[in-house]
């Protein structure tokens, strides 16, 4: 069976989930994979539930959605509740330990994103931070490709702080 990943990034609008999905997807393409990235969000231009689903495979991706996620990032309780009951036991859930309180406590890891952001001194780099945390837990893409993708997708002015946030997540 060829290697494949199904990753869900869920939270709310403004957390850079879709951009993070793009960065992860482009890194996976650099690694030579096929990728399918879908997103869903409400009709409001800002805020509300938001998620990106990334399917990465060495083979052609038939079903572009995450039928059985391997990893779910849940930044809000709503996002956590949406997946916690439905994913398989093999699926790792990384949740925001400040925003998500009701957890099932199995194959999951809480992370205090807000505290990390305060340490980093920038609240806008949450997506680079959680990409680091994700990569720390699962080798979905190579670190080199991820760094290259981060650089490609972010304006030069904010690259340094985002790379710092990514490394910070990776070191946890």
């Amino acid at each position: 069976m060829a290697k494949s990943w199904q990753i869900v990034l869920a939270g709310e609008g403004g957390q850079g989930l879709i951009l993070a999905g793009r960065i992860l997807s482009e890194a996976a393409i650099m690694d030579g994979n096929n990728v399918s990235l879908t997103s869903s969000y409400g009709i409001a231009a800002r805020g509300g539930y938001s998620e990106a689903q990334v399917v990465i495979s060495e083979q052609e991706v038939y079903y572009p959605k995450c039928a059985s996620p391997d990893l779910v990032l849940a930044l809000t309780q709503q996002a956590y509740d949406r997946y916690a009951e439905n994913v398989s036991d093999d699926c790792l859930i990384i949740y925001d330990s400040k925003d998500v309180s009701n957890t099932k406590g199995k194959n999951e890891a809480g992370f205090d994103f807000k505290e990390a952001l305060l340490t980093l001194g920038n609240l806008k780099v949450i997506n680079s931070l959680f990409l680091g945390v994700i990569l720390k837990n699962r080798d979905i893409v190579s670190r080199e490709s991820m760094i290259e993708s981060l650089k490609k997708n972010l304006p030069p002015k904010i690259q340094d702080i985002n790379l710092k946030a990514f490394s910070y997540g990776l070191d946890q």
């Binding site: 793009r22 096929n34 990728v35 990235l37 879908t38 572009p64």
Partner: peptide
């Protein structure tokens, strides 16, 4: 909507 708004390589 799926083929229109999905991102792929």
């Amino acid at each position: 909507q799926v083929v229109g708004q999905t991102y792929e390589n």
